Computed example of a mutant assay.
Amino acid sequence: MTATSPSAPDVTHSHATFAGVICGAGAGALWGLVFLAPELVRTFDPLFLTSGRYLFYGLISAAMLAPRWRHFAATVSAGEWLALMKLGFAGNILYYLLLSTAVQSGGVAMTSLVIGFLPVAVTIVGSRDKGAVSLAKLAPSLLLCAAGAVCIGWQTVAAPSQIPASARLTGLLSAIGALVSWTIYAVGNSRWLRRLDHISAHDWNFLTGVVTGAQSLVLVPLAFLIDHAHHDATEWTQLGLVSLSVAFLASIVGNALWNRMSRLLPLTLTGQMILFETLFALIYGFLWEKRLPHVLEAAAFTLVALSVVTCVGAHRSAGSRAQTVDASHPV
């Protein structure tokens, strides 16, 4: 007997999975930078960083859509604008405000740990979609993910900390809030993208940016009311540069990679790709603290990587039965 070559659908599915994972890793590398941003402008209240980032995001998005604005004004329905407002607030404004507060109050490691549970939350919700890989097949991947998160959490709790208990609690609650906020966004945004046939994923991202930029204007006066500290010209310049960099790298380039990935992978595997954000956030945190990971942290990296590999394997074995859906990250 002669060996038969893989069928065209199987080869296409394998290539799409590989390309999707690469795009997911690239998006995670850029999104991990948002965990460092609050540390770079620690003298400012999180409201300033949130409003600055999304003002730039809105301006860049408006510039990209300007040549076709009349088209979108005529084709985007009132219900879709309302959805954009809700998704922009939950997935961008509220999410990053809570995440920035968590980083400044509890640190990068603790925040990364809590946000690291995003893959579990999204994968569980995604497993209910028609054609999705069952939770039974995803169980090894989810258990490895949870074990990695436990390792990071144990290390964070066991290590001596100079952060007051009240600040750690504030950071923890803020991180949990960010987790809930983004999970709501991811599910809602995914389902909107699936039923849109007249708006591309990239244009939906830019429309979200325009709406979010408009919403961020409300935060500016609130930021000045809450933050009474004096900031010199150097600090304001640093805030502007950090806000612009995060807006472009994370919200524009990172989202573009994520949207490309979302066209190639199902929601259950999309959830696992968020692990790259956690991994890169921790790596950047170690570089910022100028240290190597501890044993438990290294074990967590290994477990999380194995979680992604086993999840990819589960989807590859499912083949063309996996249903491709769209999702977009807020960061």
Results as ranks from 00 to 15, higher is better:
Ala66Arg: 05
Ala90Gly: 10
Arg128Gln: 13
Leu113Tyr: 09
Leu65His: 06
Trp69Gln: 10
Lys86Glu: 12
Gly126Ser: 14
Tyr96Ala: 11
Val108Lys: 00
Ser100Lys: 05
Cys151Thr: 05
Thr75Asn: 07
Val122Arg: 03
Leu144Pro: 08
Ala139Met: 15
Gly153Arg: 05
Ser141Gly: 15
Val125Arg: 01
Glu80Phe: 07
Gly153Cys: 09
Ile93Leu: 04
Ala147Ser: 11
Ser100Trp: 01
Cys145Trp: 01
Leu84Phe: 01
Phe117Ala: 12
Ser112Trp: 02
Thr75Arg: 05
Val108Ala: 01
Gly107Leu: 10
Ile152His: 02
Ser112Pro: 09
Ser134Val: 00
Phe117Asn: 04
Val120Thr: 15
Gly107Tyr: 02
Gly79Lys: 05
Gly91Ser: 07
Gly91Met: 05
Ile124Pro: 04
Pro67His: 09
Val103Asp: 11
Ala136His: 04
Ser105Asp: 06
Ala62Asn: 05
Trp69Ala: 14
Met64Gly: 02
Ile115Gln: 07
Met110Gln: 09
Ser141Leu: 08
Leu118Glu: 04
Arg128Ser: 14
Phe89Ile: 14
Gly131Gln: 09
Ile152Leu: 15
Leu97Phe: 06
Ser141Val: 00
Gly126Cys: 08
Lys86Thr: 14
Asp129Thr: 03
Leu113His: 06
Ala73Asp: 06
Leu82Phe: 07
Ser61Tyr: 07
Lys137Arg: 15
Val125Met: 08
Tyr95Asp: 08
Gly153Tyr: 05
Ala90Asp: 12
Arg128Asn: 13
Val76Lys: 02
Gly88Arg: 00
Ser127Thr: 13
Tyr96Gln: 15
Ala73Tyr: 06
Gln104Tyr: 09
Ile115Arg: 00
Val150Lys: 03
Arg128Val: 09
Cys145Glu: 09
Lys86Ile: 10
Ala63Glu: 12
Gly153Asp: 12
Ala90His: 06
Leu138Asn: 06
Leu65Pro: 07
Met64Pro: 02
Thr101Glu: 05
Arg70Met: 14
Met110Thr: 09
